[in-house]
Amino acid sequence: MSVTEGKELRIIGFLCNWCSYAGADTAGVGRFAQPTDLRIVRLPCTGRINPLFIVRAFMNGADGVLVSGCHPRDCHYSEGNFYARRRLETLKALLPVIGVDPGRFEYTWVSASEGQRWRSVVASFTEQVHALGSMPRFMSGTSLDLCLRPAVQPRVF
């Protein structure tokens, strides 16, 4: 775990409840040691992810964002991860445009039984983000920030 010996970075994971969250649980039950940077947000399905959540995370200073769901064709809701894949592919292409190194974002599929795989996903993504270092705070107040911020503001009812 050499990468975490220095400073921790801010890495956010959006995980679906049925496969990857359970896979992360399986990794825990197996005591598969991992770097400690990642914080997991539990969602029902990767199809719930609005790509703007990820943009928002970066704008607020996240250094890396990891999305993980069920393997294609194994979605608990049949097709949620197909929607996710399309949305996240688009996001990936757009990240450089808004000044985020695409290496800070990754999406992958980990099933409930793949505790080992989850460990290696976390370890390699954490390492990848550490190689990029912390996210430069250049966005705040820029014109890009000003035009994106309203789009990712929560809507208040």
């Binding site: 609005n50 928002r56 607020n60």
Partner: peptide, 19 residues
């Protein structure tokens, strides 16, 4: 809005981590 996983709730979690 998906109840208990609303945009507000997920962004609140993200904010709790980042801000």
């Amino acid at each position: 809005q998906l109840r208990h996983f609303t945009d507000n709730q997920i962004l609140a979690e993200v904010n709790a981590l980042c801000l």
